[in-house]
């Protein structure tokens, strides 16, 4: 089943991988991409600007109740969890940190999976904590397409490793193969 959205979760060491993936994505792909990256609060970073230089998508930080659209690449704002509603609008949430994180990758994976079921693709990249493992498992159980970065390639393997330990049926792929699978399956 074709995915309706790609959700990428990453922490320490994930940023360059994200740039490589975006840069080599087939230009005809336009399903929404949502990026949940752990970052510091109360700082304005040039994160979105750098992403914009590396993608054919339009990059935008998520605003509450905004409609999720094709051709858009969304980033989770610092200090908010990102949820998806049944009408494909985003909701933001300031509830407790999850895995010491807000935004938490687990929260977004789980929420998107509840709405999109098998029609979503979750990718978990490098990071030095355990965020994302639980959410990716839920996504896999809902028959979504779940991918973790090759633990040998990831700069910090804890995060993909935790996902693998919790559930051993995710596709474990290096950056080149992540790009290939997206180019084959998302267009």
């Amino acid at each position: 089943m074709k995915s309706q959205a790609i959700i990428i979760g990453g922490s320490a060491g994930a940023f360059n991988t994200i740039l490589s993936i975006l840069g080599q994505l087939d230009k005809r792909i336009n399903i929404p991409i949502v990026i949940v990256l752990h970052r510091l609060k109360n700082t304005t970073s040039s994160f979105e600007t750098i992403l914009q230089r590396n993608t054919h998508y339009t990059v935008k930080e998520i605003e509450d109740k905004e409609q999720m659209r094709n051709g858009m690449l969304y980033t989770a704002p610092a200090d908010y969890h990102v949820l998806l509603e049944e009408d494909y609008t985003f909701s933001l949430d300031v509830s407790e940190l999850v895995n010491f994180s807000r935004p938490s990758i687990d929260v977004t994976f789980e929420s998107f999976s509840a709405v999109l079921k098998e029609k979503c693709c979750g990718i978990l990249l490098s990071g030095s904590n355990h965020d994302g493992a639980k959410g990716l498992k839920i996504m896999a159980e809902n028959k979504g397409n779940t991918i973790i970065q090759d633990c040998n390639e990831a700069e910090f393997a804890n995060m993909p490793n935790a996902a693998k330990t919790l559930y051993d049926q995710h596709k474990e792929l290096n950056t080149t193969n992540i790009i290939n699978i997206l180019n084959n399956e998302c267009y």
Binding site: L83, E85, S91, S95, E110
Partner: peptide, 9 residues
Amino acid sequence: YSKASMLRR
């Protein structure tokens, strides 16, 4: 209310 948030809570 936001269904997504309600579900979590």
